[in-house]
C-alpha cells in the first residue's frame, strides 16, 4: 500500500512537469493556431539557463531560486522576440511552412546549446532545503518532488483563474475559437499572440528549470519532451488546457506504475494509450468536435 502511494506521488511529480511544459504548447496552439515543434527546445533552454545561473552563483544557496525566477523570463523574452520578428510572418502560410519553420528552430537551438554549453552533460545540485526527504502522509518522499507537485498545482490553479476570471483570460479563450472576430472587436491581436507565445515559452522554461536538478541536460532533450507533449495534447484534446492537465496526469501515472510493474514495456505504454484514444475518441478527452 505504501509502495503504491509512493509510486503515485512519483507519477504526480512527473505529471506536473509534463503539464507545465505541455500546457504552454497547447495554449500556443489554441490561440495562434501554430504547433510550435520547437517548444521542447524552449524547455531545454530553461534547463541550460538554470545550469548557467547555478555556475555563476557558485555555491550560493539561493542559486536555484534565482534560476527559477530568471531562466523562464529569459526563455519567454526569447520566445516573444522570435514570435515578433519571424513567426508572425508565417501565420497566413500553409501549415507545412509552419512545421518547417518551427522544426528549423529545434535544429538551431540544439546547435546554439552545443556552441554555448558544449556537449558536456551537466546537472545542478538540489537546492539545500530539499536535500532531505520528507515524511508525507506516512511515506518518505523526496521533498523536491513534493515541491514540484505543489508548484504544478499552483500554476494550474493560477492558469485556471487567469483564463476563467480575468478579461485577458476571456480574450484568450475567445481567440482560441475565433481569432478573426476577436480582432474585429478591437483586441490588439498581434500583441495578444506575442504575449501568449511568451507565456507558453515561460511555462516551458519553468518546466526546464524544475528538471535541471533531476536529469542530466543534453542538447537534443527538447525533442524528447516534445514527443511527450504531443501525446499529452492528442490524449487531452488539441488546444484544451483542461485536457492537458488530465492527460498529463494520466500519462504520469501510466509511466510511474509502468516502470514499477512492467518495466520491459513501459516505454510503449504511452504510445499504446495514445493509439487507443485515437481510435475510440479521436478528439481526445476535451477536444472540440470538428465543425
Amino acid at each position: 500500500m505504501e509502495d503504491q502511494f509512493l509510486i503515485l506521488l512519483n507519477g504526480l511529480s512527473f505529471a506536473m512537469l509534463l503539464f507545465l511544459v505541455s500546457v504552454g504548447f497547447t495554449l500556443q496552439f489554441s490561440v495562434l493556431g501554430v504547433l510550435n515543434l520547437a517548444h521542447g527546445s524552449f524547455y531545454m533552454l530553461g534547463v541550460f539557463l538554470a545550469i548557467t545561473v547555478a555556475m555563476f552563483m557558485g555555491n550560493y544557496a539561493g542559486n536555484f531560486w534565482i534560476g527559477l525566477l530568471l531562466a523562464p523570463l529569459l526563455v519567454a523574452a526569447f520566445g516573444a522576440f522570435l514570435e515578433w520578428s519571424l513567426l508572425r510572418r508565417i501565420y497566413i502560410r500553409d501549415v507545412l511552412f509552419q512545421y518547417l519553420f518551427t522544426y528549423t528552430w529545434i535544429l538551431i537551438i540544439d546547435d546554439l546549446v552545443l556552441m554555448i554549453w558544449g556537449a558536456r552533460y551537466s546537472i545542478i545540485s538540489l537546492p539545500p532545503i530539499f536535500s532531505a526527504p520528507v515524511n508525507f502522509l506516512g511515506v518518505t518522499f523526496s521533498s523536491y518532488r513534493l515541491f514540484i507537485i505543489l508548484l504544478g498545482l499552483l500554476v494550474a490553479g493560477l492558469l485556471w483563474f487567469f483564463l476563467q476570471k480575468t478579461k485577458a483570460g476571456m480574450i484568450v479563450r475567445a481567440a482560441s475559437v475565433n481569432r478573426e472576430m476577436v480582432g474585429a472587436l478591437g483586441v490588439n491581436t498581434p500583441l495578444l499572440f506575442t504575449a501568449v507565445f511568451a507565456l507558453g515559452a515561460w511555462l516551458a522554461g519553468v518546466g526546464g528549470v524544475l528538471v535541471a536538478p533531476l536529469q542530466t541536460a543534453y542538447a537534443g532533450m527538447g525533442l524528447d519532451i516534445i514527443v511527450d507533449c504531443f501525446i499529452v495534447v492528442v490524449i487531452g484534446g488539441m488546444g484544451s488546457i483542461k485536457g492537458a492537465f488530465w492527460a498529463a496526469l494520466t500519462l504520469g501515472m501510466l509511466r510511474a506504475f509502468g516502470i514499477a510493474y512492467v518495466p520491459q514495456v513501459e516505454m510503449a505504454l504511452s504510445y499504446l494509450l495514445m493509439a487507443v484514444i485515437l481510435i475510440i475518441r479521436p478528439r481526445g478527452f476535451f477536444g472540440r468536435e470538428e465543425a
Binding site: E180, G183, A184, L185, G186, V187, N188, T189, P190
Partner: peptide, 8 residues
C-alpha cells in the same frame, strides 16, 4: 490598417 485599429 489591421481590423483592431479600424474597430478602435
Amino acid at each position: 490598417l489591421p481590423p483592431y485599429r479600424i474597430n478602435r
